[in-house]
Structure formats: structure tokens, C-alpha cells
Amino acid sequence: MSDAITETAAAAPVWHVTEEHAHEHGGSGPTILGFWIYLMSDALIFASLFAMFGVVSTSFAGGPQPRDIFDLPLVALNTAFLLASSITFGAAIPHIEQGRVGPTRAWLAITGLLGAAFVGIELYEFAHLFAEGATPQRSAFLSAFYTLVGTHGAHVTVGLIWITVMLVQVGQRGLIPENRRRLMCLSMFWHFLDIIWIGVFTFVYLFGVIR
């Protein structure tokens, strides 16, 4: 009886230690899964914003309609910048894995510049819409539009700050395991924002124009 108890007591820590060791060895431990769960919860925020936009997307209140205010060539340019930034981040991944600091920082900087161009064009678009009187107060459609697209834009801006921080950290400390882990999370975050943008350009801009 007492033998069995000591055996389980002794067996449990051994199993636990091995498991923990395996995680350490595997790379970033639970961080990647945890960050994935965060991205999924962020996806739910965007789902509710898309749902709201879907419900009021034809509530124009006599105000401007998507066909009148959306400039598709500009949106196409914006989409190209964001997609290109996703690809340039992907191009940095092999350099991160093989510990090459120079090319990592170069690709990261290019990604940041493309992301900044995206945010710049979006702000230009918003300023243009405001000048035409298409403000969030004008109709439910415009309120939902600014909330959805603005939330995405705010995420991209946070991503840009994160890229800047990583450029400095990689410059100071090199590609230490902590920085690699952070860059992997940033990579997931950046690709995730591009996925949300697929929904935005399809359901907000393209659907709006053909309606």
C-alpha cells in the first residue's frame, strides 16, 4: 500500500520534468499556442464587427453609398501593399531561423515600410471621405465602415510599433531565443492582419461596389 503511494509520488515528478524539458527543447514552449489563442479571440472581435457591418451595410440614411465613395484603384493599391508586406515578412523567416541578423533586419524594415504605406493610404482615404462629408455620423453604414476598417488599421499601427521595437531589439541583442520567439509571434500577428484584410476588401469594398 505505502509502496504504491511512494511509487506514484516518485513517478509523477519524473514524468512532469521530462515533459517540461521536452517543451524547452521544442522551442518557444506554450507561447506559440497562447499567442494563437489570442489571435483567435481577436478574430472574434473582428467577427462581431463584420456582423455589425453586414447588418447595417445598406442603411445609408439617404447619405453616400459605397459606389459613390469607394475608390477601388486606391483599395487595390492598399491591398497590394499589405499582401506584399506579408510576403516580405515570410522572406525574413529563413534568415531568422538561421540567425542572420542583417537580412532579418532588412526584410523587417521593408515589411515595416510597406505597412506604413498601407496605414498612410488608409488615412488619406479617410481624410478624402471626410472632405466629401462621408463622416461616421452620417449613416449607420458609415459608422460600421469606420469602426471595422479603423479597428483593422489600429491593429496594423500596433504591428508597426512592434516591428520598430523588434528592429531595435534585434539590433541590440541579435537573434537570441527570446527575440526569435517574439519575431515568430509578430509574424503570426502580421499574417493574421492580412487575413482580416481579405474579409475587408471582399465584403466591404468589392461587395459594396457591385451591390
Partner: peptide, 14 residues
């Protein structure tokens, strides 16, 4: 799981 919730939220609301 997220995909199911997203479809329910967007599809159900609309």
C-alpha cells in the same frame, strides 16, 4: 472552434 463561432456570429446576425 473559432471558425464555427465566426460563422454563427456573422451568419446568424445577418
Amino acid at each position: 472552434f473559432t471558425a464555427v463561432i465566426v460563422v454563427l456570429t456573422i451568419g446568424g446576425s445577418i
